[in-house]
Amino acid sequence: MSISSSGFSWPLRVYYEDTDVSGVVYHANYLKFFERARTEWLRSLGYSQESLRHEVEVAFTVSRVEVAFRSPARLDDQLIATVAVTELKRASLVMTQQLRLGDIDGRLLAEAEVKVVSVDAASFKPCALPDGFRNRVQTVENAASRNPSSSAA
């Protein structure tokens, strides 16, 4: 199933620990920012990584990431990370993510396409997304695509 929506957004700030010697965000830290946004997106749906793992015995693992770096983030920058589900399959989700400056400019800093696979928490073998989770994603993402101003922040 393909889903198009305005997605979910989460605010972040760049700390000293995120930067390299030149004062810009080290490239690997963009993956951390994207991960934090996906985790908060999951929480916004009423789930946590731990509850899925312990109660439903499902975990998510990233199977593919493609990142395009557009402009550097710098120390103390306020950022906005977004998550939008673009594809929902039996055992996986594909999401597009953006990292933008959180000011009026909203300059695009990086964008990624991330494929996340549902796996059995014990064996780490692919398994179907839980029905309740799948239904919640479809409901929320479809509502967001009908009403772009409904994105969580």
Rank of each mutant, 00 (worst) to 15 (best):
residue 6 S to W: 12
residue 152 A to K: 15
residue 8 F to A: 07
residue 127 C to A: 08
residue 101 L to C: 03
residue 42 L to Y: 07
residue 3 I to F: 12
residue 25 V to C: 04
residue 31 L to Y: 03
residue 101 L to V: 00
residue 75 L to G: 10
residue 82 T to R: 05
residue 133 F to M: 13
residue 113 E to V: 11
residue 23 G to A: 06
residue 64 R to I: 08
residue 150 S to Q: 15
residue 128 A to F: 06
residue 119 V to P: 00
residue 138 Q to F: 14
residue 57 E to D: 13
residue 10 W to S: 06
residue 32 K to V: 14
residue 126 P to W: 14
residue 121 A to P: 08
residue 69 F to W: 14
residue 8 F to V: 00
residue 57 E to Y: 10
residue 151 S to R: 10
residue 153 A to G: 15
residue 80 I to D: 08
residue 116 V to K: 13
residue 89 K to N: 11
residue 151 S to I: 06
residue 96 T to V: 11
residue 77 D to G: 00
residue 88 L to C: 14
residue 46 G to H: 01
residue 57 E to R: 13
residue 61 T to K: 08
residue 65 V to D: 01
residue 129 L to F: 08
residue 133 F to W: 15
residue 86 T to S: 10
residue 80 I to F: 13
residue 116 V to E: 12
residue 12 L to V: 04
residue 4 S to D: 12
residue 146 R to K: 10
residue 81 A to W: 04
residue 14 V to D: 01
residue 146 R to F: 13
residue 42 L to M: 05
residue 141 E to N: 09
residue 84 A to N: 11
residue 23 G to D: 02
residue 14 V to L: 00
residue 26 Y to T: 00
residue 28 A to C: 04
residue 8 F to Q: 04
residue 130 P to G: 12
residue 78 Q to T: 14
residue 50 E to K: 12
residue 109 L to I: 03
residue 136 R to H: 08
residue 131 D to W: 04
residue 52 L to N: 11
residue 152 A to F: 14
residue 16 Y to C: 03
residue 114 V to R: 07
residue 109 L to W: 06
residue 116 V to W: 13
residue 114 V to K: 07
residue 102 G to T: 02
residue 72 P to G: 05
residue 60 F to P: 04
residue 49 Q to W: 15
residue 57 E to I: 02
residue 127 C to D: 00
residue 126 P to V: 15
residue 109 L to S: 01
residue 57 E to K: 15
residue 70 R to H: 14
